[in-house]
């Protein structure tokens, strides 16, 4: 519907790329604080149960775990490249690179699934008998392990859906060389999800 007011000379919906990015950054703060709360809990419980956390992390497979940061770091590269591609007006390549990012996200999730599945096979999964018998402290290590990596996995899924939607709109042309802020924002979110993993990985696998 066309404007039905006398205030037609105020054009309210001009596209504010800077504002949109500002909004995204503020949103990223909230994500950092969401995980920040968990890092706090981790720090407190590690302090309370030092030896048990030591044993817990010895039970995780570092090699399998180390694949994932590499995968995610690569996916950050492809996302960053897709932004550059779009800025240069090559939307086909931009979409391709998003697809590569999604494939890497899938690889990450598959690896995660494999890790969790081995835990499952050992009865070390929340709700299973062996899990319930875990001694104090070590139980807390695995509680946090499953909670934090689980929450992170949910973020990977959300980020992937976001990138898919963005790819769709690039294809439609709504997101384009002039208006690429949404892709940038999607990329920012993806970088954040990865940065969180960069911290999760040493906390659970490396620190002993």
């Amino acid at each position: 519907m066309t404007s039905t007011t006398l205030s037609h000379d105020v054009h309210p919906v001009h596209f504010d790329a800077y504002g949109k990015k500002l909004g995204m950054w503020i949103f990223l703060f909230t994500e950092v604080l969401l995980f920040g709360g968990l890092f706090l809990v981790y720090a407190a419980y590690r302090f309370l149960n030092h030896d048990a956390f030591h044993e817990g992390s010895a039970e995780l497979n570092v090699v399998v775990g180390a694949i994932n940061p590499v995968v995610l770091l690569t996916s950050r590269l492809t996302v960053a490249m897709s932004i550059t591609a779009l800025q240069r007006g090559d939307s086909k390549r931009a979409i391709n690179l998003i697809m590569w990012t999604l494939i890497l996200a899938g690889t990450f999730m598959f690896n995660k699934y494999y890790e969790w599945y081995t835990k499952w096979e050992h009865g070390l999964f929340p709700g299973m008998d062996h899990y319930k018998e875990l001694p104090a402290g070590k139980a807390q290590f695995f509680n946090l392990y499953f909670f934090m990596t689980g929450l992170h996995a949910i973020h990977i899924i959300i980020g992937s859906i976001l990138l898919m939607v963005i790819a769709f709109y690039i294809k439609k042309g709504t997101i384009n060389q002039q208006r690429y802020t949404y892709l940038e924002n999607g990329g920012l979110y993806w970088h954040l999800v990865d940065v969180i993993w960069i911290y999760l990985f040493p906390l659970f696998y490396l620190i002993i």
Partner: peptide, 23 residues
């Protein structure tokens, strides 16, 4: 800056109640 902290805290309660993660 403050709300996410209660968000995660409440999720921990949910995880403890539904998944048995005795956080």
């Amino acid at each position: 800056l403050a709300t996410p902290i209660i968000g995660i805290t409440l999720l921990m309660i949910v995880a403890e109640r539904t998944l048995g993660l005795g956080l």
